[in-house]
Nucleic acid binder design. Sequence first.
DNA 1: CTGAAAGCGCTTACAG
DNA 2: CTGAAAGCGCTTACAG
Lengths: 330, 330
Amino acid sequence: MREVAALADVSIKTVSRVVNGERTVDADLARRVHEAIGMLGYRRDDSASALRRADRVSSSIGLVFEDVANPFLAYVHRAIENVARARGVLTFAASADERPELERELALAFCARRIDGLIVVPAGTDHSYLARERDAGLALVFVDRPPAFLDADTVLSDNAQATANAVRGMAERGHRRIGFLCDRAELYTAQERLQGYRDALSACRMAEDPALVRANLANPASVDAAVRELFALPEAPTALFTGQNLITTATLHTLRALGIHNSIAIIGFDDFELADLLDPPVSVVAQNVSELGRTAAELLFARIDGDTSPSKRVVVPTTLIERGSGEIAP
Amino acid sequence: MREVAALADVSIKTVSRVVNGERTVDADLARRVHEAIGMLGYRRDDSASALRRADRVSSSIGLVFEDVANPFLAYVHRAIENVARARGVLTFAASADERPELERELALAFCARRIDGLIVVPAGTDHSYLARERDAGLALVFVDRPPAFLDADTVLSDNAQATANAVRGMAERGHRRIGFLCDRAELYTAQERLQGYRDALSACRMAEDPALVRANLANPASVDAAVRELFALPEAPTALFTGQNLITTATLHTLRALGIHNSIAIIGFDDFELADLLDPPVSVVAQNVSELGRTAAELLFARIDGDTSPSKRVVVPTTLIERGSGEIAP
DNA sequence: CTGAAAGCGCTTACAG
DNA sequence: CTGAAAGCGCTTACAG
């Protein structure tokens, strides 16, 4: 900026005015400044600008996800980006891999860059470390799972209700032995979906058989083992509910390997690409992914804009998509 | 930092030393500083730090992709993030939606934040606008497609060769009419893959029938229309090569709708989830996605570290995965 | 080992 | 309408 001022033979304050589009600059001076900017290829340093500005706004936000490559989260990312871009805000993204200490490290690294807001898909079980950042002005929203030991805006799907609805549907079709597979039991989403499963059994006056409930399936191999065990049972299930997209696809592989994919009913949580082209087409509880992302971003920007109302919890409805696999009779 | 210094009753320079982990601070002073930091919840402002540092390193990079939600790019993103995180570098990501002016706007917005490096999947056809940024010290790498009117490191798959290899395989199985479907003809990847298709035909002494080549398929509807036209031809193809993952899945839907999915051979460029569970399992040319991302990130950090050697062009090999659909006989 | 002064690139607050 | 001075939060360069 100093060089531009020197070349245009004006003060740096005048260059600043031109760069910021202030109208109170003499046309001739403005022209000289623009020429100098063009000759030097000058571009304002936005971080230096933010440092000095009264509002200290960096026009950037941070995303701490489990994995930016997870298709569900990649869509959430995109939905957030759309809202941010409309406001001229740039987006940092990072993957915490379900590691609480990494989540914390990444979130605080973003804060050290003085982002305006942070959206977290929590891996950790204690988010009190963010309280000070929020007190310092950070806007904060949680998606997919709620925060722990911290009160903040949260956007969730109706996990329990949607699962109960899907499981009840299978029970009403006559299934009496319905298996339930989910990932790490300490995850909020796994707990809620398991609760929904139990609610449906109660509503249908069916007793829960612990042998049919398999949690902590953290990878495809453990899913495969669990499914094989279920179907080696004296009284094997006739239907399955899978609590997450990776578990659903792993289960589909095993059902195919066992040759029972056309006789066992299955509904999965999360929609996925090509579910409709499989044999049978796979019924799912579909989350409204873009709505989750859009809502989270809008809550965040409302806070950035100064909203100090009590924390909100927004529940985004899911949709049961019946494609065939969930409607197989016992 | 000033408040910390006041509370610890030291100079801000001493606080700076402690925060930066310099060992030349008296243990007692360091302890007082640490206490003050804890009491105030102080965290250094990394952007202010970068502004003043001699090297002006921001420890952040920018990614301008077509769409962060595209599964192929989401994996590239993750592979880059892994390399960046190992160096303590944070990652901005943005989607340019194949819009050249948006690509430019986003890239320059990142530059205005003084990122250390930029990785671009180009949408535009003129990247000379980045020359000045690079002269100003920006490290620059292109992935998936090369830059235009700018010389810079580039990481590509072996598009033409892989396509030629796959198409030649179908020809050797006896197919004489092989259709080719790809997206916008001005895209480098579409051109290269079409070239590979033509190379294979030449190598097999087959004449190209323009009626079998369908480009500019920008959405599923246009793919569906194109496939239906191909199979309404007096001499319909007996095999297809689809030039991109979204085109492959759209084509699979139409083949299924036409009831010919078990009689038409098909190989798609790009692997995708569940390809092995479809009927028939889908053969693909799989890009080495994590290698593309990792290589791009490593080239970028080499430049950030001061590598001034001539621009490199790295070609990452692909893999033909034969699952069944590509091996169907005419 | 410690700190006072200067300055990174910019904007604020104010005087002319 | 224009600019000189001060300062955002930090590090550099230097003196003690």
